[in-house]
């Protein structure tokens, strides 16, 4: 009984390490996507969009959306693109909301919801797990 368990455990560990390495190579395995009207973004602009300091890019009003609070993809997005953790990001938007400068980006539950929203909404920006990227999606940053 112990040998198969050991092998399974080793395989899981190796898989986890491989995934981790892969994620590190690709910005946490998170890809920023946007409506077809948008062009590629740099990290600084993305950070300003998700902190409410930029509302338009190249004259196009942007509509960022977040993954659900606490989700793995959101945590990785915050870490790799915004250099934040959930608590700091929530605290930032709490202050921003109560200085009257708006609410944090709307939250969508799944990658499919994000993709559908981004495809259908001019100026929309979202992020999804790299594994969920489909052909034809406008990738803004990865």
């Amino acid at each position: 009984m112990s040998a198969p368990v050991f092998k399974t455990g080793l395989r899981t560990l190796l898989l986890a390490l491989a995934c981790t390495a892969s994620e590190l190579d690709a910005a946490g395995g998170v890809v920023v996507i946007g409506h077809a009207s948008l062009t590629r973004l740099d990290v600084a602009t993305l950070e300003r969009i998700y902190t409410g300091r930029v509302i338009e890019v190249d004259g196009i009003p942007v509509k960022p959306v977040n993954a659900n609070s606490g989700s793995a993809v959101r945590n990785r997005f915050l870490q790799f693109y915004l250099n934040e953790d959930e608590d700091k990001y929530t605290a930032y938007w709490t202050v921003r909301r109560y200085i009257g400068k708006g609410a944090s980006p709307r939250e969508l539950t799944s990658s499919a919801d994000v993709i559908n929203f981004v495809k259908a909404t001019p100026g929309a920006i979202g992020y999804i797990d790299e594994a969920d990227v489909q052909p034809g999606i406008n990738v803004l940053l990865k």
């Binding site: 509302i55 009003p61 909301r97 708006g102």
Partner: peptide
């Protein structure tokens, strides 16, 4: 209680 409304791309309203 606070309500923030995004009325349009450039317009918003806040009531607290």
């Amino acid at each position: 209680l606070q309500v923030d409304a995004r009325l349009a791309d450039q317009f918003g309203a806040t009531v607290q």
